[in-house]
Amino acid sequence: MEVALSFVVGVFFAVAIYLMLSKHIIRILLGVSIFGNAVNLSIFTAGRLTREVPPIIPEALQTPEVATANPLPQALVLTAIVISFSLFAFLLVLAFRAYQELGTDDTDGMRVAEPEGEPMPPLGY
């Protein structure tokens, strides 16, 4: 199972990175979203996989009687999901506003902070 998921995670990363290398902010955003999933899945996989036994202690017991899924990566990933969603929403709105202000979705056209052909700083004193 880990082998299959490692492969899937690799594909997730590759697709996410391919999308993020685009010049179109919408594709970059899609890439960011997939990238988040890829990261979460890899954390989850790195904590080893157990099928179908959630980390929940039965009502009658004090500690789990059988080996459950590893709870730690789940806790990490849970918050990561929510935070990556927050980031995604932020980037989405940022991209939207940038599109409204600059009239383009091409990152080559978004050169307000680093304008093209900036003049050389003065050589005098």
Binding site: P54, I56, L78, T79, I81, V82
Partner: peptide, 8 residues
């Protein structure tokens, strides 16, 4: 706290 679920 006891079953799947929680604040998030």
């Amino acid at each position: 706290h006891n079953e799947p679920g929680g604040g998030f």
